[in-house]
Design a protein around this nucleic acid. Structure first.
Length: 159
DNA sequence: GCCAACGTTGGC
DNA sequence: GCCAACGTTGGC
């Protein structure tokens, strides 16, 4: 018995980890999320097989560059326990981990990226609750409705 | 590089 | 519980 598939958008700086990197490795643990809202989406919301829009931030043309999917249930982010990691959290213990992640699996690259600019032009259709273009929102993991998913991928040029 | 917006920390 | 200080995000 599986619940209905959900959709998400996950941001990454391509200099740190890009859609090409994901294609190369296939599956990647989404380490380093240190925001409670984003953590909660991964820990409480995500299910294996959910769709992910892979977004490049902090780059020449910010936007959606590929599709991925949730590959595992949520589990504790191992980097919180690693003293040498920049993601180390001294308040986290293995008995009571603070940060969770899922593994993300490559599905495909888009034929052409869907730029943030194009996405903004669909603001009315996407609705006010869409966190990507909500003023001031910087969430790196955010939910996407089935309707929004359809609108966004409808912007992909297929030629 | 700038800076607005936001989240977190810590003193009180 | 308040809030100033600080750090981070991320578009531009």
């Amino acid at each position: 018995m599986s619940a209905r598939k959900r959709y998400w958008l996950m941001k990454s700086e391509p200099t740190d980890f890009s859609i090409d990197d994901l294609e190369r490795v296939g599956t990647e643990p989404w380490t380093g999320v240190r925001n409670y809202q984003a953590r909660n989406f991964m820990r409480n919301g995500m299910q294996i097989g959910d769709g992910i829009l892979f977004y490049h931030s902090n780059t020449q043309v910010p936007g959606i560059y590929g599709i991925a999917e949730v590959a595992t249930e949520a589990y504790p982010d191992p980097t919180q326990f690693e003293r040498k990691s920049k993601y180390h959290d001294e308040k986290a213990t293995r008995e009571e981990p603070r940060w969770f992640l899922v593994d993300v699996r490559f599905v495909r690259k888009l034929h052409a990226p869907i730029s943030l600019e194009e996405i903004r032009q669909q603001a009315d259709a996407l609705g006010e609750e869409f966190a990507l273009i909500r003023k001031g929102s910087r969430l790196s993991v955010l939910p996407v409705t089935a309707a929004q998913w359809k609108i966004l991928l409808g912007l992909e040029q297929t030629s």
